[in-house]
């Protein structure tokens, strides 16, 4: 084991200051991913700054009718919270579809957003990986990539973002609140994760030393319903082969509002803007939904062994939208 320092902090300011003064520092939330990666030798922080006890563990109502979720709120608590279940079912469902009961009890909201890819090459330090060691190559492109990206990948990386929660947040137009050495800022959840391009080592737009303090949800759109559906290799405790988070409002048989995001397809939750364009103002029929999904997935560039994800994502999208439309 590589020796590392451990620091527990009491405030966000203290956390950010500590990180700024410590090269190689990383924030520790629930540790459900970071500690695993440390055991594998993939992550080698010199100092862990434990932020799991910061007073960021509350879910608060915002004046505009939205919700602020503290970064250390545990996944299980968030999934079970009444306002989330009642107003943002897509989020509750996404959280409950992730990991296992034990992990959800420990994993935090901020940590969930920062979990890293499950690409087998990324996790194996005896092999090349551009994400882990830039410039070494991407063996996944021609190797074991059944579970990897079909959208937005690059010659350098075909990894997928594994979070279910992040897909729901993308569909909900959530905002990520960050606190760093230069103060506070917010980033739309849809822009928080990056595409790999030529720098796959960067998963997100987070800057050095920045700490996630909260995720904010806009008020629930009147008349809209939301849902998350995930396809996976086993009934529980498996990452998404593909997933869909959707928010849909239908009035008089016509789509009034639609927000759609895919998981398991790309290096970030894939907000389906092209599909939404097709949906908006169109009749709420399976035919429309299929047309919308096709419009989005036309951009897919499947690899040798993951072409199945395209019809799978299409089927999920059509199914979820049809289900939501049937509620009105």
């Amino acid at each position: 084991m590589k020796p590392f320092g451990y620091l527990r902090v009491d405030s966000v300011d203290e956390a950010v200051r500590a990180a700024a003064g410590q090269p190689g520092a990383q924030f520790l939330g629930g540790g459900t991913n970071l500690v695993d990666l440390m055991k594998l030798g993939v992550e080698t922080p010199r100092v862990l700054i434990d932020v799991s006890r910061l007073p960021l563990d509350r879910i608060e109502e915002l004046p505009d009718g939205g919700l602020r979720i503290g970064a250390t709120v545990r996944n299980a608590d968030l999934a079970a919270s009444r306002p989330v279940r009642e107003r943002y079912p897509v989020l509750s469902q996404a959280l409950s579809a992730g990991a296992s009961g034990q992990l959800r009890n420990t994993a935090t909201t901020g940590g969930n957003l920062l979990q890293r890819t499950r690409c087998p090459y990324f996790q194996d330090t005896s092999k090349p990986c551009n994400k882990r060691e830039p410039g070494t190559g991407c063996p996944a492109r021609d190797g074991a990539h059944r579970d990897l990206a079909v959208l937005g990948h690059s010659a350098h990386c075909v990894a997928t973002q594994p979070s279910d929660m992040a897909v729901a947040l993308a569909a909900l137009d959530a905002t990520v609140r960050l606190h760093g050495p230069e103060g506070e800022r917010t980033v739309p959840a849809t822009d928080f994760h990056r595409l790999p391009g030529d720098s796959p080592e960067r998963d997100t737009v987070i800057r050095l030393g920045e700490l996630i303090t909260a995720v904010e949800l806009p008020p629930r759109r009147p008349g809209a319903h939301s849902r998350y559906r995930k396809a996976r290799d086993r009934a529980s405790f498996a990452f998404a082969l593909a997933s869909v988070g959707a928010v849909l409002a239908v009035r008089d048989g016509v789509v009034e509002h639609a927000a759609l995001a895919f998981g398991g397809l790309a290096h970030r939750p894939w907000r389906a803007r092209a599909a939404e364009e097709v949906l908006r103002g169109a009749p709420a029929t399976e035919r429309t939904f299929a047309r919308a999904a096709d419009a989005e997935l036309a951009a897919a560039e499947p690899l040798r062994d993951n072409g199945f994800k395209v019809p799978l994502a299409r089927a999920l999208a059509v199914g979820v939208l049809a289900d939501l439309a049937a509620r009105d």
């Binding site: 086993r234 009934a235 405790f237 498996a238 990452f239």
Partner: peptide, 18 residues
């Protein structure tokens, strides 16, 4: 690489309770 692609219990899926 010549090794097995599913080496841990996250990738080698034994049935879960569900």
């Amino acid at each position: 690489f010549g090794d097995f692609t599913a080496c841990d219990l996250a990738s080698y899926h034994v049935p879960a309770h569900a």
